[in-house]
Design a protein around this nucleic acid. Structure first.
Lengths: 214, 214
DNA sequence: ATTATCTTGCACACGACTGTGCAAGATCGT
DNA sequence: ACGATCTTGCACAGTCGTGTGCAAGATAAT
């Protein structure tokens, strides 16, 4: 009946317990993506557990969602890592490609960020990632590589949303990974103000340099 | 206690009744934009009425929401009207500018389209508008005016989402109408694959031709 | 001023969800 | 095989939302 803490239990947790905990977080991701107000019943059922068992791992429903959000943000941030280039356009393309590698996590966060009582929580968790993107863009503007007609903050949003839109379309249509990653890169660069031909060149260069899998 | 029908009451409705009905729809728009699951209590309160009074105008909560959705879609479609030009880029810019004129309605619909049990309903109501945009884009692609690197259907989504993103940012920051309309046009054209300089030229041309207020 | 038309306030039934207690059963660790 | 650790199932309290009935009050129309 004790809550299995995520940090350091007094005594090591049982193996099935940790497995079930992970299954719950996983199930919550899937379920919350469809419906941010999904019931604990639905989440527990998907994890193959009873609703009652959830309270053995998380104090409240909010506690579970918070865990999902933080885990998701962490995995996205880790998936992006650091981008080592002077060309902000290449950086944007690289981030886009790496984003595709974390699609499932990204989409959950994106949906949760829009609505529900967790908007602010999710926004806070995503703040570091957004800061990275914004830094890249501001840098690109000051170097004359990116558009000057729209404020950098708004450009950051445009890049973000364009990538998310394509992320959604790509998962929906089920195209292959290479094609999807390319689409995400192209969309992000469009938001950044590049014409589609130029964006294509940047994507090619990015792929050639092997920065994506750094 | 009878429900005031929107089409043709047996006998004309009382003046305050129709006013209250409009107030309810208005309040629902505002409230649903913040929270698609807003309670009838919250909506009625904003309209200056009691929850019980709502049932004098709408049979169920769903009936009210449906009315809001259809009214919103109709006003947006009417706001866009028809665009008379052979240049699909100018057409996109024009639509963007006119979209700004219907911001409040557009944003409600956009938020409702994302989540909640009304996704499909809203999608159906918006279908004609989306078809217009898609036709413009497919036409533009076949004339060599628009990008060929991304499927037209996805491009349509990109244009739509870019415009909505800027619509949100513009309302949030409260800039003036001319500036906002320009941003919306630029964002839409970016999604369509234009570079930001070229997009600027198209916007200037569109404004010069006076197509926006046709 | 009188009638028909709303609106209100309260009552209630109903459903969906959260969070908790407890006993019995299943599973793991050793 | 034994004890500690999960999990289950059920019962229950509490909250919040919808939809309805009804009597009393407010407002508009003529």
């Amino acid at each position: 009946m004790d809550i299995v803490t995520t940090t350091s239990p007094d005594r090591p947790a049982r193996r099935d317990a940790t497995r079930n905990r992970a299954a719950l977080i996983d199930a919550a991701m899937v379920e919350l993506r469809d419906d941010p107000d999904a019931s604990l019943d639905a989440i527990a059922a998907r994890a193959g557990l009873s609703r009652r068992a959830v309270y053995g791992h998380f104090a409240t429903r909010e506690d579970l969602v918070l865990t999902v959000v933080e885990a998701g943000a962490a995995r996205i941030a880790q998936g992006i890592g650091t981008v080592d280039t002077d060309d902000s356009r290449v950086a944007i393309a690289t981030i886009g490609a790496r984003l595709w590698a974390s699609v499932s996590h990204v989409r959950v966060m994106a949906d949760l960020a829009v609505r529900g009582p967790y908007r602010s929580t999710v926004a806070a968790a995503l703040a570091p990632i957004r800061r990275t993107l914004r830094d890249v863009i501001e840098d690109g503007v000051s170097r004359g590589q990116l558009r000057r007609d729209i404020p950098p903050a708004v450009v950051a949003r445009l890049v973000e949303d364009a990538a998310l839109t394509v992320l959604g379309e790509a998962t929906r249509s089920g195209i292959d990974d290479d094609h999807a990653a390319r689409l995400v890169m192209l969309a992000g660069l469009s938001g950044a103000g590049l014409g589609w031909q130029e964006a294509g060149l940047v994507v090619d260069e990015t792929l050639r340099n092997g920065l994506v899998n750094a």
